[in-house]
């Protein structure tokens, strides 16, 4: 199934490169969740910055589509764009001082309107359990070495294949698999110690 999805992305990218706007939007739909989460991690969890960075990424993607030939995996190509965009943003943030205009209400408070949202959220208990589990996982990830953390995130959070990870990290697939194995075992041990997970 992974192979089929990757083939679909490559085909969409090639169609988008030849001017098919519908294909480009499908490409955005197919990748935006992954891109946004990568942006979120690059921005230290700041949702606003992550949204801006996501826009930058897709603008860069659009600009560079003409050069995509489908010889490498689209995912790998997209990863490089994300990396470059995040690095550019980091450089700009260091240079500029930004002041945001917000609309003030009469009482001087931030005037953003609260929207009525249909309540389809999980129950408070379910949400708390989910956030505790997520927090446990993030704490455990932080305890891994950088190499192990990076490869776990690429594989299990960003969804890259072993082959794509091999291209991204410029290491052979055997090394990817053995590093993944060790990272996985280490993380599973940390999680089991932490909260009885597994």
């Amino acid at each position: 199934m992974d192979g089929e999805r990757r083939d679909k992305l490559t085909l969409l990218a090639l169609n988008a490169a030849s001017g098919d706007e519908g294909a480009f939007e499908e490409l955005v739909y197919a990748t935006e969740r992954t891109v946004y989460n990568m942006a979120l991690r690059a921005c230290g969890g700041d949702e606003h910055d992550a949204a801006d960075l996501s826009q930058d990424i897709y603008i860069k993607l659009w600009r560079s589509l003409a050069s995509f030939r489908g010889e490498s995996s689209f995912n790998t190509w997209l990863f490089r764009i994300v990396q470059n965009a995040a690095a550019d943003r980091g450089r700009k943030a260091a240079k500029n001082r930004t002041v945001s205009l917000t609309v003030e209400g009469e009482d001087g408070e931030d005037g953003r309107d609260e929207m009525d949202i249909e309540d389809t959220a999980p129950t408070p208990e379910a949400s708390l359990m989910e956030s505790e589990t997520n927090a446990d996982v993030m704490r455990a990830l932080d305890k891994l070495t950088e190499n192990h953390r990076e490869i776990v995130i690429l594989r299990y959070m960003d969804g890259f294949s072993v082959t794509e990870i091999s291209e991204i990290l410029n290491i052979d697939e055997g090394t990817v698999k053995s590093r993944l194995f060790r990272a996985r075992e280490k993380l599973k041990n940390l999680l089991e110690k932490g909260n009885g997970f597994g």
């Binding site: 935006e32 969740r33 992954t34 946004y36 989460n37 979120l40 949702e47 949204a51 996501s54 989910e130 589990t133 997520n134 996982v137 993030m138 776990v152 299990y156 959070m157 996985r184 993380l187 599973k188 999680l191 997970f197 597994g198």
Partner: peptide, 14 residues
């Protein structure tokens, strides 16, 4: 469960 727990750390887009 391990794979699902890691994927669950991702958030939906705004």
């Amino acid at each position: 469960a391990f794979c699902e727990a890691l994927e669950a750390c991702n958030t939906d887009i705004p």
